[in-house]
Amino acid sequence: MAPKQAHGQTFIERRFDMTKGRVAIVGTGFVADLYMRSLASFPEIEVVSAYDINPANRARFCGYWNIRPAQDLEQLLSDQSVALVLNLTNPASHFTVSKACLDAGKHVYSEKPLALSVADARELCELAAKHSLELASAPCSLLGEAAQTAWQAVRTGKIGTPYLVYAELDDDFIPRAPYTKWRSESGAPWPYQDEFAVGCTLEHAGYYLTWLIAMFGSITRVISATGDLIPEKPIGNAPRAAPDFSCATLYFESGTVARLTCSIIASHDHRLRIFGENGTLEIARSWDNNSPVKLRRRYALRRKLITSPIATRIRLKQPTHPKVGRWGAASMNFALGPAEVLSAIAESRANRLSSKFALHLTEATLAIQQGDGVHEMSTRCPPIEPMDWARTS
């Protein structure tokens, strides 16, 4: 069970039957510790077991967090008290593990991407629908305070009509960083071979794609280009390294257009800027749920158009969600996604992180990674509801 952790922030706490708040983890690597620390902020959610194909990893993780180890996936899935399985395996295993969980009648929350092909992602969504199960995927930062604040500002017309978005997800020169020494809280190494093989686009683009899809609707067209600029990155048994740079132009059904860049070469930059007719919204850190959302208004002054040099911070008046500490470059509550799925199940309502949303996100991300020019999107997702605490200010 995740250890309790005190938080100074107040928040709207969702209560539900504890039987529906029992989860199991498959994959006990680096990211699993981030989930455990985040789950500690939701004491109504209990982690009852964990499994990893590597016995040493399983023993390390379960021993550190005092969780019952499952000897195999079948044993974990046979526990009738488990409502939701968190699929935290490496990306190449996401499809197989999620399919096994759905076949066993379990709701699934998967780390990103949902699958490594649109066909596999679509198969998972169809399987979930067939069995009336929830299927969702990371990232869940859309549910965080920074994203919800920015979205509320767009909805209430703070910048007028939003026309253009610049989104940056550059992580500095990672191939030259001491990544072999990076360890999680329980001692798991950073999975650098998987990271370089899967690539920064599949790993990171979703952090802003989810925000933009929620704000501006489904993506209708993706135009992308990529580059593998540092080919000597370690990738284990993978056939080749994924691109370490991508740049995409995204066309949304609302008419808004966005430019999204991802790289592990350019200096660290996680800014988001939304340009509207009356001003600009600015967020400096996409991986920080509490990153300030700032507004710069635009004025017509005599014969000039002036953008205010002074940015005003926009805040929500009501409590939002539990915050967590900073781990490396991130200060995100990874449990917001699982908590949303469990709450939706308990309340018999639509899950904000629906399978159609996950499928649309997967297709868009893969289209950017492929970098083969114009991709007309084949999927759409239904409108997404803002969090209750972000509906008004």
Rank of each mutant, 00 (worst) to 15 (best):
M1P: 10
A6H: 04
H7W: 01
F11Y: 11
E13M: 12
V31S: 10
S41V: 05
E44L: 08
E46V: 07
D52T: 06
I53H: 00
N54Q: 08
A56L: 09
R58L: 11
W65G: 01
Q71K: 03
D79V: 04
S81K: 10
H94T: 14
F95Q: 09
C101G: 08
L116M: 11
A121L: 14
R122Q: 15
K130G: 04
A138I: 04
L142M: 13
E145K: 13
A147G: 07
Q152W: 09
V154C: 08
G157L: 03
I174Q: 04
P175F: 09
R176F: 10
W182Y: 11
A188Y: 03
Q193R: 10
F196G: 08
E203H: 06
L212W: 09
F216D: 06
T220V: 15
R221A: 13
D228R: 13
I235P: 00
R240V: 12
R240D: 10
F245K: 14
S246I: 09
L250G: 02
L250A: 04
G255M: 04
T256S: 02
A266M: 02
G279H: 00
T280R: 00
A284K: 04
S291K: 04
L295D: 01
R296D: 02
R313P: 07
I314R: 01
L316H: 13
Q318A: 15
P319L: 12
P319D: 12
T320I: 06
H321M: 14
M332E: 15
L336W: 12
E340D: 13
L342A: 06
S343E: 13
R349Q: 11
R349C: 10
L353N: 07
S355M: 11
G371L: 09
G371S: 05
V374G: 03
H375T: 14
T379W: 03
P382F: 01
M387F: 04
